Computed example of a mutant assay.
Amino acid sequence: MNITSFLLYCLIVTFTPGPTNIVILSAVQNFGVKKTMEYVYGATVSFGILLAVSALLNSALITVVPKVLSIMQIIGSFYILYLAYQIFKMDVSEATVSKPVGFITGLLMQFVNPKVILFTMTVIPSFVIPYYNSFWSLFVFAAVITAIGFLAFITWVLFGTIFKEFLQKYQRASNTIMALFLVYSAFVASGIVGLFRR
């Protein structure tokens, strides 16, 4: 397992602007840290649930249809490339939140957040299952990824205003660097590296 590529993918996807992080950023400015933390707890719980469901579904599917792993790796790689493109062209300057946030809002938003759904459905089969497929190893990786997600949410809470200003000031440079890291992760997750080693 290429742990560097796995961590890069997890860190970039969870720490970069997306619907959840933008809501956190705006909520901390509009409603304060305490109310935003309720949203963060809800978002973290549903993030963990989605990862656990993905791990179980993909593990069961691979047991029934072993060739599906290669297909999921390819789909995951294309999704990572798509994310790289989205991050490269992203504009975070106009994101605001006007509605109150809370635990239930955070919980429900993850289930309709395409970035989170696609990430949770691709990270396990692309990076974990090719190397580890026991129940406990999948549980550990799901817990680690959930913790990374929680740390990303906390980062957006703690450094909300400063982080937003930084992204606006250096948006093009930071988005380009993160997009290039994602392209590297897509290349590794695709399984192409393994073909060259044979």
Rank of each mutant, 00 (worst) to 15 (best):
M1P: 08
T4M: 10
L7M: 12
L7H: 05
C10S: 15
L11M: 11
L11I: 13
V13E: 11
T14K: 01
F15P: 09
T20Y: 00
L25S: 15
S26M: 02
N30H: 11
F31N: 06
K34G: 08
M37G: 00
Y41S: 12
A43K: 03
T44M: 09
T44F: 03
S46T: 10
G48Q: 02
L50G: 06
S59Y: 02
A60T: 09
L61C: 11
T63L: 06
T63K: 13
V65N: 12
S70T: 10
M72R: 03
I75C: 11
Y79L: 10
I80N: 12
A84G: 10
A84Y: 00
Y85S: 03
V92D: 03
S93Y: 02
S98P: 04
K99L: 06
G102C: 02
G102S: 12
I104E: 09
T105G: 09
G106M: 04
L107G: 01
L108S: 10
M109K: 05
M109Y: 07
K115G: 08
I117G: 07
L118N: 05
F119H: 10
T120V: 08
T120W: 03
T122Q: 05
T122R: 01
S126H: 02
F127W: 03
I129V: 11
I129Y: 07
I129G: 08
P130G: 04
F135I: 13
F139A: 15
F141M: 13
A142G: 13
A142K: 04
V144D: 01
V144L: 14
F150V: 02
I154R: 06
T155I: 00
L158I: 06
G160N: 03
I162E: 14
Q168S: 07
A173I: 12
S174G: 00
T176V: 06
I177Q: 05
F181N: 04
F181L: 15
L182C: 02
V183W: 01
V183S: 07
A186N: 04
F187K: 00
S190A: 05
G191I: 01
I192C: 05
V193Q: 07
V193T: 13
G194C: 00
L195M: 14
L195V: 09
L195Y: 09
R197K: 13
R197A: 07
